[in-house]
Design a binder for these strands. Sequence first.
DNA 1: TCCTGAATTGTTGGACCAACATAACGCAGG
DNA 2: CCTGCGTTATGTTGGTCCAACAATTCAGGA
Lengths: 238, 238
Amino acid sequence: MRENAAARRISGRSAVDTTAVRILDLIRARQLNVGDVLPTERKLSELTGASRNTVREALRTIRTYGLIEPKPRVGAVLADGRSIAIQNFFAAHMDVSRSSFADIQGYRRIIEVGIGDHIVLHASNEQIEALDEINARIVTSRSIEEAAENDFNFHMALIRLADNRMLADMYSFLSPVILRIMTIGKERRPVLADTKAAHGQIVAALRARDRLAYAYLMSRHLDFALRFLPEEPASDSE
Amino acid sequence: MRENAAARRISGRSAVDTTAVRILDLIRARQLNVGDVLPTERKLSELTGASRNTVREALRTIRTYGLIEPKPRVGAVLADGRSIAIQNFFAAHMDVSRSSFADIQGYRRIIEVGIGDHIVLHASNEQIEALDEINARIVTSRSIEEAAENDFNFHMALIRLADNRMLADMYSFLSPVILRIMTIGKERRPVLADTKAAHGQIVAALRARDRLAYAYLMSRHLDFALRFLPEEPASDSE
DNA sequence: TCCTGAATTGTTGGACCAACATAACGCAGG
DNA sequence: CCTGCGTTATGTTGGTCCAACAATTCAGGA
């Protein structure tokens, strides 16, 4: 145990860090994949020579990365929690509230116009049809909140067609703010049919694989929404 | 204490999670900034009603986010370890999902191509000239890291011309990973003159206010970079 | 200036709990 | 007597807590 501490000192890292590295090495060495289980904490304690508390702190680190999900009775399960982990990272580091509505809408515009090329080139006809289905739900909304949610779902489905996890993660991270923007917009101008029509045109452009039309229509659609937003920044959500 | 744990169980979260949230709330409530110190673990244990081990696990989570750095004798210090934290985060995930690099490059492409319109319409000639200046520094780089940094600075300057806070925040958030991608790319193919030339063409397109040329050149530039990324990136460094 | 002591994190070992899965057991019915 | 089923005992595991010691660092006094 004492020489363990010495080795730790040499490597410059704490026992928890070295333990975390060892566990990650173990995962790599055993070629574990998502769904496989890690040895129990007590076993890991034996394997690494560290105490169970140290192992737990190391596992906590790996867990924060979204790589494992502990399951009682069976052990830690290799997970694919990348999305959630990224969202937590964003939440911990970025202060969305300091951005203005215009900023976020501008960001959306760059993104949603920008993904047009990829969608036109790679999306299947079925996927595009599915967009129509989602779009149809907007006019059935019973409340403004529900309408905003349906609106967001349409745009989120579009984002997903871009086939880029980072993008999807960022969007779901921003979803509360975007929903808030949409809600405010619909409060000021509650014409769901117009929104549905605009979405419909966008889908039609995709169906025709017309990237220029898509870019134009999407850009106009988002600009239009911006026109009905107040100047204030996105203060306190939730 | 026992009923405390029970209440936590009911709230759906673990004691560690709620403790982490409470500590983050504490940081926010006290308006703590980088360099300020958190209460000691024992104090936090009293404040949150959780045991010291639980507090330690919560602190470990926050630490993994790079928000604090523990210092013996004084307590945890609010830190700006974002870069390292994000690098570690992606390093931990590269082994699992190899598509991360492609994801990020795809994201960059959407963004950097997408901001062309705004730059062409709103950037001043002086701002565009400044890009040339930044670009010139690339060939003076003395090391690969410095070259990557100069490369990134050029792209970051472009992003800033988009005049969108959310965008700039996202980019600086991702900067550690982008820098790493650039470093790897330059290690494989260290031709700085080519990069400078590609950047120069992009700036020329902006100067001519030619948005189509910009989109084409930028898209090609980023695709080109992607071609020199390994299939299995980020094999253990340091 | 140097040194002692105190405070704090780092680490360890141990303990208990709740949840859960499995094995062992007992009982009714054939 | 055997078989099948429901029930109970048992063991394992993560979650939490406690007490103790080592290592480090700083404050303050000799």
